[in-house]
Amino acid sequence: MSEEKWTVNFVVYRKKGDGEPHYQTFTLEVSPDEYVIDGVERIWAFHDRSLVFAHACHHSTCGACGMRVNGVEKLTCITRIRDVTKNGGTLRIEPLRNFPVISDLVVDMSRLYVGMDKVHAPAVHPLSLAPLEGEGIKPPRDVPMDGGKEYLRLADCIECGLCISACPVAGTAEEYLGPAVLAAAQLQGLKRAPDLAEVVDCVDGVWRCHSAYECTAVCPSNVDPGWRIMDLRRQVLAQRIKRWFGGA
């Protein structure tokens, strides 16, 4: 990190109870290599103790700190100030869209959790279910696995809700399962989990998606939901065809 100092105007969305939402500006001296959440936390610590915001891990593993930064969905704990504004510039900080606002920068994401539960999205799963293309390590091949069992991994999806906020369809269709949920179904695969077909093969499932790929653009955690929704459609069709030709 350099000794460089920038002055940045944080324009922050504020809302309390039934009160009218408004924006409030806080001018902060920051290091450009700090992360956006550091600035937000400093506003709370030194300028305004009434600010409400969510965060926990500060290193992109918990999914709590999603916000819209200058109109784009970001995990604020891994978004460097240098990458989203300039010295003397502005950072417009707003809560995620397509979820009800609880207060200021915090939204109620129960819509996402209900969906994840509906498709029984595992939080920990065998390594072979983790999409490793391109990135990360491969399971060691020549080593006996954990007592004959496969290695387990924490799922890639951190349930941050960025994809739902960015999705142009999720805003108008409240019942739409949304990208993260459909991706979780695709990851399990309809072959392994045929019961999921019922949940995802419906208007508010795979067929609601307009292939905008905004979800994939904002996903911070290697899930690529846009691609997975398209693949899930193929799986759904394959299963239907199998059924027509005398399957169960």
Binding site: K16, G17, G19, R49, S50, L51, V52, I102, S103, D104, V106
Partner: peptide, 8 residues
């Protein structure tokens, strides 16, 4: 206590 979400 002070609930900061609804300022109560």
């Amino acid at each position: 206590v002070w609930n900061r979400a609804n300022d109560k």
